[in-house]
Amino acid sequence: MESVRRQNHIILGVQSLKKYFSIRRGFFQRVAGWVKAVDGVSFEIEQGKTLGLVGESGCGKTTVARLILKLLEPDEGKIIFQGSDISEFTEKDMKPHRKEIQIVFQDPFGSLNPRMTIGLSIEEGLRILGIKSGRSRKERLEKLLKMVGMSPDSADRYPHEFSGGQRQRICIARALSVDPSLVICDEPISALDVSIQAQIINLLKDLQDRLGLSYLFISHDLNVVGYLCNTIYVMYKGQIMESAPAEELFENPCHPYTMSLLSAILDPEPGKRQKMKLLEPDLSDSLITSAGCNFQGRCPIEEPRCRKEEISFEKVGEKHIVRCWKVAEK
């Protein structure tokens, strides 16, 4: 488990990933349009690092997670995990790779089976993948519970006996049970109490240091993402709008959407009431996109060209790209 992993090694690369959902209407359920939930998303996660994916609800963050886990089949694009393209894998090909990518969900109340003891829930992955025999599973279970800061005797208890923070610890232990190298955290702390959030963030960080885990951290909380992530990708209506190393993104945001997101951060600092660059409310049919930039209609610096052309990325810094042609003019 504690194997030393090489630095700067790309563990997961996603290339022009696309997933469209059809909207069906009428008696014959004809396809009336397409929702471009994920529309050409590319990113790379380095071994042992944390990539933050931020955006408003409905922007496609969770769909990206489900595509990587192969819970959904992508329409186009590649998912290169540890050197092999898993997007083409069948269920059977995928099985040996399943243990490598695990997920921690947002709601620890909905993601644990209330009829299974904690021990059974955590062991299930090991059992299904046929890793380890009965006795060594018990040992592993104890070790996992200790690792996430729970007492080993909680294995025989049921989820309702635990608080939200404890349940999230259990979910993390379950994700780690099969010794994954990549953990997808889909809003793992937003359902937790404020005083518990810091505990879980610290735990995720400790585990990363100890086990060399890589995280794909999905969140809408920019304070947390700014604290935890190495690289940040800003997503809007299925597309990446801007990506940069965390500090660079906060210091020098270039896309108007990123700027408005950052200005909506509430600083816990009275007297510094934020000057918000308020976005126009999104009045378009938010799911279906038309030609040109996806941010049209809400963008404060929009020009006619933005509605005509496909907008591609402009390079601003070494690892800083922005999907806005006006950046190049500055």
Binding site: V194, S195, Q197, A198, I201, N202, K205, N223, V224, G226, Y227, L228, A246, E247, F250, P268
Partner: peptide, 12 residues
């Protein structure tokens, strides 16, 4: 215990 960018690298 509030996370923020300025606390990067430190333990919360």
């Amino acid at each position: 215990s509030l996370p923020s960018r300025s606390k990067r690298g430190t333990r919360l």
